[in-house]
Design a protein around this nucleic acid. Structure first.
Lengths: 344, 344
DNA sequence: GGCGCTTTCCAAAGCGCTTTGGATTTCCCT
DNA sequence: AGGGAAATCCAAAGCGCTTTGGAAAGCGCC
């Protein structure tokens, strides 16, 4: 069923039917009702490609997912983020499209998306330090918004980010206040901007407290469970092992915990752990009492805010770029306690 | 840059340029090269909506994601599945589109997708027992493939599934062979087909061994960490607690493990655990030695097979429906041991 | 009754591509 | 040289929608 046959069936012109369905005022309420009725009955929906061609709008938001460095899609954070984003899309009538990109082809892909006109805007996930995609997108002129920021990029762009530096600074201070001096950081990949900032916060808190940051206590990699386990096990075997560990995600914290258990140590008593908690639905930080002391910020909520802002940007291209900083809250759970030395 | 201006620039007709770019033989190699060169130089890409309108193909695969019962998207499995699928899409030139659907609107959504023509086919994720979406899609005539199967649906359809029944049957037998008699099942939601089948396998193994299934040892809910923890804690407080637990996913198994630790018991020695392992990239079951004994089947691989089969179906609509059964392998890790009674 | 205004509708152009049906040129062979 | 096949190109229609620029009808008003 297409417009033409529907119009013929109704003995009306395509124009009138189209206008009736799109809420234009030039059509009487009576015919509008008649048209809507018929549309429902015949299960008519305007062909999205034709509509897009005519309007120049795709009503689709693009997500470009790096493939070989597998961060984004495989990271459990991805699902929650997308769930949040989809909530906003659904209310505004947008669909979301994912395009996989192999490393190095990024410039290509963005050019292609813009030229093909298959999306009205894109969400830039997982920004790195000095991320070239930002100037690229500005140059191309495709509306975009960044989930996170990019240190080193001076250009003006739209972003939503968690205050990663502050939250890890606070977490570190919290441990210092508990008497810890050997505090390890099991960070994400530090070319990722969020990890870069977290490290800054961690280092700054240490320095402020007069503790010299120890490079052997700072690790960086993709935030898997196995990674958390591996690094913790290694560090616990050190001559002066850490008494506290900052982990980058719930998943890696689970690995940290496994290593602590295996070493015959007790969480909180022997080794304190603080993790960042993205508040993932499938991996809640406990039910009533949090398992881990954590810096918490819902990535699902971030997704929703982000996509809403992008849609606003698409619909009002000339509005100035907006930003939104989310503060992570520090929730105290069962994984932290006074430093062992302090106790004696 | 569009076809028209590109053609004008080349002093050629649109027809010739289009044919040159789409590999038709009616154009000389010389002009083809000239055209390709110019297209590259001007960064020309055919507008996907216009192309779609003309060809009747969207080159997009749809994923419909249930929203309120949040299983699919939030489940960490989602990311890995999509990553696998995207690999196939990328090689065949398809994009993937996600549409969020609130409960009850499913019929609507599929009708809309088909009528709007915004996708060439859909992947049906998370089939339930007696899933009405299958007859619906058959009726609508939109190409689709099911990730899993649906018990109770007799219609002919295309699917890829893990042999869930067999794998849980084997896992249960494995525990029985170790002397366990009180074996608990912490299952997923049992209106989901995969969970339904796992339970069948579990029950059948028990009965075959002459063990009467105990309803108090069978739990069912969404497979979160907190759920695994909660049910395990409850069961360990029973008069006759289980000596072995079958968990439905790595995430819930982590919760199971946490409850065992908290109860002061030791994994494998006091309580054995087997889990299903979807081989998620961020949640590998250990590095060299598996953490958990598990039935393992890569969901990423499933995604790839599934999307490839769907594309084949789209490109050859008249080919008969194909199916693909994946066998989960049983990997023995450090979470299982002989039943406590047996040891004395 | 004729004028202007609003209401209601329509024919046709245009979005950017593919594809049909032909036209033109080149080439080879007898 | 002439005829047919092969190679190369093109004009125009069509995909299904929106939107422009009017036209027709209905209305009150002087």
């Amino acid at each position: 069923m297409n417009l033409k046959t529907l119009a013929r069936k109704l003995q009306l012109s395509q124009t009138t039917v189209s206008r009736a369905l799109n809420g234009y005022p030039e059509v009487s309420e009576a015919t509008r009702r008649r048209v809507e009725e018929a549309a429902r009955e015949h299960n008519y929906r305007p062909n999205s490609r034709a509509k897009g061609l005519a309007t120049g709008r795709a009503m689709v938001i693009g997500h470009v997912i790096p493939a070989s460095t597998q961060h984004e899609m495989l990271n459990p954070v991805f699902g929650d983020f997308v769930a949040g984003a989809s909530r906003a899309y659904a209310t505004y009538g947008y669909d979301m499209m994912f395009t996989r990109v192999d490393d190095g082809d990024e410039e290509q892909i963005y050019h292609a998306l813009a030229a093909k006109g298959s999306v009205d805007g894109v969400i830039l996930q997982g920004p790195r330090v000095n991320d070239v995609r930002i100037p690229l997108l500005n140059r191309i002129g495709l509306p975009f918004i960044v989930h996170g920021r990019s240190s080193g990029i001076e250009e003006n762009y739209c972003w939503v980010d968690v205050n990663n530096k502050r939250s890890f600074q606070r977490a570190t201070e919290f441990l210092i206040d508990l008497g810890h001096k050997r505090i390890a950081l099991i960070n994400g990949l530090e070319d990722m901007d969020f990890a870069h900032r977290r490290r800054e916060g961690y280092v700054e808190a240490l320095k402020t407290a007069g503790i010299e940051p120890d490079p052997t206590l700072m690790r960086s990699a993709e935030m898997t469970e196995v990674y958390g386990h591996h690094e913790t096990r290694a560090m616990l075997k050190m001559e002066e092992p850490p008494t506290a560990i900052l982990a980058a995600s719930m998943i890696s914290a689970i690995g940290v915990r496994r290593a602590i258990d295996e070493a015959g140590l007790t969480l909180a008593r022997d080794v304190s752990v603080i993790t960042h908690d993205d508040d993932l639905s499938y991996l809640r930080n406990g039910s009533d009492v949090p398992i881990f002391t954590a810096t918490r910020s819902s990535v699902q909520q971030a997704g929703e805010i982000l996509s809403r802002m992008l849609i606003e940007k698409i619909e009002q291209p000339d509005a100035p770029n907006r930003n939104h900083m989310l503060e992570a809250e520090l929730v105290v759970g069962r994984s932290t306690g006074p430093a062992p030395e302090t106790r004696r």
